[in-house]
Amino acid sequence: MNHYQRQIILPQVGEQGQQKIAEARVLVIGAGGLGCALLPYLAAAGVGHLGIVDGDRIEESNLHRQILYTPEHLGAFKVEQAKQVLQKQQPQCTITSYPEYLSGKNALELFDHYNIIVDATDRIDVRYLINDAAILTSKPVVYGSIHRFEGQVSVFNYNDGPTYRCLFPKAVEVPSCAEAGVLGTSVGIIGMLQAAEVMKIILQTGSILSGELLVYNTLTAHQEKFKFSKKESIEITQDFFDENHNKSENIQVNFKQEFLERAVLLDVRNLEEQPRIKHPSVLEIPLSELSQNKASFKPEQNYYVFCQSGRRALQAVNYLKENHINNTKPLAENATQLKNLVTSVTIIK
């Protein structure tokens, strides 16, 4: 037990607390910037079981902030690499990696196996999915998110407390790190604040950020807390969950059918955004340049639009429809997911 001696001597931990840490089962959704920051500390503290969910593969543009990965890992699943590094650092920790994206289909079953859920994703729609699945399975969620130099941290559904929907009732589209830019130190700080909340929940000590939104600004080193209360009018039922998370109006790309022969995949990201998807079916026109390229769209053609968060894809779909290019739909996959699909299947075209 020498390994944990320095934390066991804390009156808030002790042998009993260390036992609680060892018995904890924490599921981390997202092995990006926030996940890479908080995972090593949870493993090092002796968390008995860590689950990591992410379908992304490691890209060069991740390396400035996702510190578990090195250039030789490019192209590998993030969760597999994270597991390998953490396991080497902390052999006593049991780590389960899930190289898949969280969805309405797998969320409830996954959550059932864990006590605490950590939201370290970079997509708003997944944040609602995590929230709703956590309510149905009665798990607390430790939430962290980033916009440039600012981060938000809170704890949802803790002892039936307020949830993400009490804070932000409506799903909206906002820019991700890929679109807005971020410094590694900012995600590091926010990830660490999340890890600290996880430890407090396990140890039942301190005051937990339930019903409070902490906003930290890394440029000014200011932090502020905002109180919010539970909205009893918001009720998450299984039907609501299925309605919101188990049906998608977005089209999923299918490389195995003749899908691509009839379709153009329209990438509306700016040309410098990575990863680029080089494929005969992909047409690259940034959202801001759609109007000047309007004439090149054919009304009889099917267009499936994608970007990074889905926000610009929706704007592009609306714009094209306004201009009578009606066979236009947003893709369920974002650029990163699409890149993974393109590299993992043989394309017949």
Binding site: L34, S145, I146, Q152, F168, V174, S176, L213, V215
Partner: peptide
């Protein structure tokens, strides 16, 4: 709440808080 109507007072500090996506 968006549908709650609070009377504002001199000196109130009013914060505008958007959701963030990044992680």
């Amino acid at each position: 709440d968006q549908d709650e109507n609070v009377t504002l007072k001199e000196g109130d500090v009013i914060a505008l808080l958007p959701p963030y996506a990044g992680g």
